[in-house]
């Protein structure tokens, strides 16, 4: 019982941190419309490596839901969920495969996030014209993934194991 409460509190903290990063990111100007670094994913990558995929899924989905309700609309919810679900799936599988380091996993997550959003956009708009954005989104997803992976990797190795061990 105590352990469950502590995990809930820890995940709540992580969700809050991810939401603050969403807010901070809104001040960073974007080179091309629609391209973002995805700062909250530093938290998601950290939770995925330290607490496992169910915890990462919980934090990610609650974060997307709350940010959309507070700052977005129904459509941003759909795009956000599609990106979050696919990138989580890809990152979880690649992490299990032990094939890439954190950076590679995060790059694959970033690219699949952008690909999922293009697919949803194509379905919503009923047009295939927007696939022409895919190369730019792949480059953006890769670069963002590198940054997020490096930052997430630092968090994973530098935050002492005891922080989480004590909590759990």
């Amino acid at each position: 019982m105590k352990q469950k409460t502590q995990t809930t509190a820890l995940l709540g903290l992580c969700t809050a941190a991810a939401m603050i990063l969403s807010y901070v990111e809104s001040f960073i100007p974007s080179i091309t419309p629609g391209l973002k670094i995805g700062l909250p994913n530093v938290v998601i990558v950290f939770v995925l490596y330290r607490l496992g995929w169910p915890a990462a899924a919980a934090v990610s989905l609650v974060r997307v839901g709350l940010t959309s309700i507070l700052f977005g609309n129904v459509m941003s919810l759909a795009y956000g969920f599609a990106g979050a679900v696919l990138s989580l799936l890809v990152m979880t599988l690649l992490r299990r495969a032990h094939f890439f380091s954190v950076v590679g996993v995060s790059v694959a997550g970033g690219v699949s996030h952008n690909a999922a959003q293009i697919v949803v956009a194509a379905a919503v708009m009923r047009t295939t014209q927007i696939v022409y954005y895919l190369p730019i989104l792949i480059i953006g997803g890769t670069l963002a993934g590198i940054l997020i992976g490096l930052a997430g990797g630092m968090l994973i190795s530098r935050l002492p194991e005891s922080i989480i061990a004590k909590w759990q």
Partner: peptide, 29 residues
């Protein structure tokens, strides 16, 4: 799995993605 090996694969993944996207972009331009 040695960490060095993983980093090399990371770089390969990044290289392939950037090359594929960059080539497609250049060709369309």
């Amino acid at each position: 799995m040695p960490a060095k090996c993983k980093v090399r694969r990371d770089l390969l993944l990044i290289f392939i993605l950037l090359l594929a996207a960059g080539a497609t972009l250049c060709l369309t331009l």
